[in-house]
Amino acid sequence: MRDELGTRLKAFEGRSATVAGVGKDPVNAPMIRHWCEAMGDTNEAYTGPDAIAPPTMLQAWTMGGLSGHRGPTGRPGSSGRTEAYDDLLTLLDEAGCTSVVATDCEQEYLRPLRPGDEITFDTVIESVSERKTTKLGTGYFVTTRTDIRVGPDLAGTHRFRILKYAPARRREKPPRPRPVVNRDNAGFWEGVQEHRLLIQRCTGCGTLRFPWLPGCNSCGGPEWDTVEASGEGTVYSYVVMHHPPFPAFDPPYAVALIELAEGVRMISNVTGVPYDKVRIGLPVTLEFQAHDKELVLPVFRAGREAAV
């Protein structure tokens, strides 16, 4: 199938995106210091009277911030940017490729930059890919190449690649997995459907147990009845799930081992607070969460004070 949009986009290759752009600030020690502190880079080459700028700062000297650049005339907001790049992006927007993500960059260093250096730069649209389909959506990779100079000398080259794409349609979230119900735990799940949290109790020795089992761990007795939990408990332990992602869940989320007031422990989710506010010893209260018409699960809600 012929890609007519791709053909039109290819015509932009080799055209200028920025002509005679001027760095908003000269290379300077404060920006170098802030960069090194942020990166944790303590190389002595970046300090003292003979300091150079970290090579990876190359793009930083071309950026205009929120207030923009000054161009060759010194006018604020005059960056030397051409209409060609804007036209390219507009063409992609009109085709539905309204989202953008930076994918990677490549840098080549030819001479060190030192405090006081005034930089200029020119940018060319180096390449536009064929139409690509990614997990984010379908679109085109656009690569620009920026040549950065100090006076007539080329100091370095920065290639920057973005993906302009039409977002993929989100699939409908699948239903939450169902618990495995068998003859040993059916009574527990029947209680949950009635919004009751039932704990097994051995009729021989009185020991409470959870999860439900066919016999008592303490005395081995097979007979049992149930008591209904009060619903009060505390977080005994927890983990925060980040990976692997499951389509029915929204990580990150906390999975906690809850110690009930009756003394038994069960695994459940903690609601009512962000995952990073869950703590060992956090008081929680039982509630029942309906995920659909058929699935009800016991979860534990933290008090409002825990969210502060």
Rank of each mutant, 00 (worst) to 15 (best):
L208I: 06
C205N: 05
A248D: 14
P247D: 14
V264P: 09
S237H: 01
N182E: 03
C202M: 08
R178S: 04
A256L: 01
E259Q: 07
N185Q: 10
L213D: 12
C216F: 01
S230Q: 04
H243V: 06
D184S: 08
G231N: 11
S218Q: 10
F210N: 03
V270Q: 04
D184Q: 04
I258S: 01
G187M: 03
I267F: 00
S218V: 11
H195D: 15
T234K: 00
V227K: 01
I258E: 02
W224R: 13
P179N: 05
G220T: 12
M241P: 02
C202W: 02
P244Q: 02
Y238F: 15
V235G: 01
D184H: 13
G220S: 10
A254D: 14
Q193A: 15
V239K: 01
D250K: 09
L213A: 11
V227P: 12
A229Q: 07
S218H: 06
G220I: 08
P244E: 15
P211R: 00
A186C: 03
V273T: 01
C202E: 08
N217Q: 14
F246A: 15
R183F: 12
E232P: 02
R183Q: 09
E262C: 13
R178G: 06
A229S: 15
E228Y: 03
G220L: 05
F210Y: 15
